[in-house]
């Protein structure tokens, strides 16, 4: 049992990260906190891919003497793309939050909804 938990330690961490992110997104009315939750959630996915590609004892996939086990480079490359997408999403989200603050004077979702209902 302990072996099972310790052997999959990174997957446990990934699940915890994703759940923390999802929970933050759903429970917090503050838009910045929502974005933070989204980022944590995405980070969980990045870790998930990297964990798939890791081969125990493997090195970076560069042909060199004395090494014959390599980690799978493809998930890492894919995650470079996903990181770029994540950065773009976060930047766009923050830009929107700035404009929401300018237009409404608040970034708390419950207050925004109240203001929207009034008009």
């Amino acid at each position: 049992m302990t072996d099972y938990i310790l052997g999959h330690i990174n997957y446990w961490i990934i699940i915890i990260l994703m759940m923390v992110g999802l929970y933050t997104m759903m429970s917090k009315p503050n838009l910045i906190k929502k974005m933070a939750g989204l980022s944590v959630f995405q980070t969980g996915v990045i870790l998930l891919y990297i964990s798939f590609g890791k081969v125990t004892g493997g090195t970076a996939p560069i042909v060199a003497e004395g090494f014959d086990t390599y980690s799978n480079p493809l998930p890492q490359v894919l995650m470079l793309t996903a990181i770029v997408v994540g950065v773009a999403t976060t930047a766009l989200g923050f830009a929107l939050i700035v404009r929401i603050q300018e237009a409404y004077g608040s970034i708390e979702e419950d207050e925004l909804e109240k203001m929207d209902d009034e008009t």
Partner: peptide, 27 residues
């Protein structure tokens, strides 16, 4: 309308969530 900003943000959060689910599935 300023509601465009909040609806866009709403869409951003949900859309990214959907895309990330898709990404996990692909992984």
């Amino acid at each position: 309308n300023r509601k465009a900003l909040t609806s866009s943000f709403h869409y951003l959060v949900l859309g990214t969530l959907g895309a990330t689910f898709f990404l996990i599935g692909v992984g």
